[in-house]
Design a protein around this nucleic acid. Structure first.
Lengths: 262, 262
DNA sequence: CAGTGGTCTAGACCACGCG
DNA sequence: GCGTGGTCTAGACCACTGG
């Protein structure tokens, strides 16, 4: 017993590493609800006393849970069972024209609808050579240039998404797309005004662990992967007119798509 | 210099933890290509000699890279920069009827098309009470029963996906759906033969770190998250007739969807 | 066999939070 | 000030890989 929590002892006969036995005990307690979301996991010193092992052994067990996303450590306070934050659902119709026509960008309209306060920061616009993954999607030759719009999206001040859009310079130059404020409805609205009537989007989804810069930009706790989306916008006639590269915190999002059976 | 690799020294004036400075150096080498996929990272003893720190400090730096999915450790051989395995693309039309009509299940047809050898194992069929997330999606009352089909998919002997399907017992009982071999075209073909003409699917996508059982079932290396998909099949008329809960290794998959602009 | 990573010990000092 | 987790040291023995 550690506090109110019943924890078994180490089985010295087992082949399983001691720290794994310990993390198994704690994981079981979390999965069965003996340790509920928000609960404090017994402190390192309590676990050392209970199991009679070195501190590094306990820390290795705790790190395993943290890397599975089951717990978060708070310096000076303790280790806690992670409580899942409210999630945002990204539906596959989120770029439908009926939403865009309200004059709001997709993100703003959607977050306001759920009662949150959306904001956007770190907006940067520049012109550059198109990177290779953008060239292949936009059908550009090596050396061709694009307008690059970067920004970060926040809900109630918490960062949830970074995004970088690429539009062929030939299309975007001399248009509001190169302004920091691209105007009501965002760049998709601007593209349609310029005669590129949008037909559909292709979205590719990957999942992986974040690298250091992404951990910082999205303030990610350890053990949380990211969604990496690359979306290509196609105009009627089949021309690709934009590529958007976005990174989402996976524990703030559920993606939702509709698939045809026909 | 460590072997052919140029590595900076620790900056003792920096606030940044020593092990993080070391992992920064190695991450930079990986991102710039000085350490290419498949390359061996300098061994712990070499890094200890180069940096003049304790072994645990080096190991902490290496663990950081591993938890980001950038490297894999092989006991007795060394630590290597991970080379991405060939990925399988899941397109949003993969359940279209034109594919199903070939008489093959979606997975088999698709993998054979790419030259791999598909297989399925761990097939289990049982009847049980529907869990809550299935009830809400199928519109069932508490206590109602479902046929549960579990299986694991492999390509060339490597596990890539586990899946569990739930079909209302009222529909599936007395049909081939309850057999281990559900017949050509899989259960979607059976449902259509029974008069449930499929209309569309809703697919929800989450990403998270795997728990222990998933690591084992999919033979996942550390630092690799999973996609967790929950797909609901709707028949014409709007009735939900199946829920499928699947877990995919994220580094074997890219998901791909088409979004309407209308 | 030598070299590698995997586990574990028993200490130390520090930075953070909270009362 | 005390308890918490964060970092670091300097060893030890083990298991696996490869020549």
């Amino acid at each position: 017993m550690v506090g109110d929590l019943a924890l078994p002892s180490i089985d010295p006969a087992s082949d399983r590493a001691v720290f794994k036995q310990i993390s198994d005990h704690l994981r079981h307690a979390i999965e069965t609800g003996s340790l509920a979301p928000g609960d404090k996991v017994p402190s390192e010193s309590r676990l050392i006393a209970h199991y009679g092992v070195a501190r590094m052994t306990i820390r290795q067990a705790l790190r395993e849970l943290q890397s599975e996303g089951l717990t978060v450590a708070e310096h000076g306070r303790g280790v806690f069972v992670r409580s899942r934050p409210p999630v945002r659902r990204l539906a596959s119709d989120r770029f439908a024209r009926r939403h865009r026509d309200q004059g709001k960008a997709a993100f703003i309209a959607e977050v306001e609808g759920t009662g949150g306060k959306p904001s956007v920061d770190s907006i940067k616009v520049e012109e550059a050579e198109a990177p290779e993954f953008v060239r292949t999607r936009l059908g550009l030759a090596a050396g061709e240039r694009v307008i690059v719009r970067s920004r970060r999206y926040l809900i109630d001040g918490h960062p949830v998404e970074t995004a970088v859009s690429f539009v062929p310079a030939e299309i975007a130059r001399e248009s509001p797309i190169v302004m920091v404020d691209s105007g009501p409805g965002g760049i998709y609205a601007r593209l349609e005004e310029m005669g590129y009537r949008l037909d559909h989007f292709d979205e590719e989804i990957r999942s992986r662990m974040p690298v250091r810069d992404e951990v910082r930009a999205l303030k990610l706790p350890p053990g949380v992967p990211v969604f990496h989306l690359v979306r290509t916008a196609f105009a009627a006639g089949g021309r690709a007119v934009e590529v958007c590269d976005t990174v989402l915190s996976s524990d703030a999002y559920v993606l939702s798509y509709q698939l045809p059976a026909r």
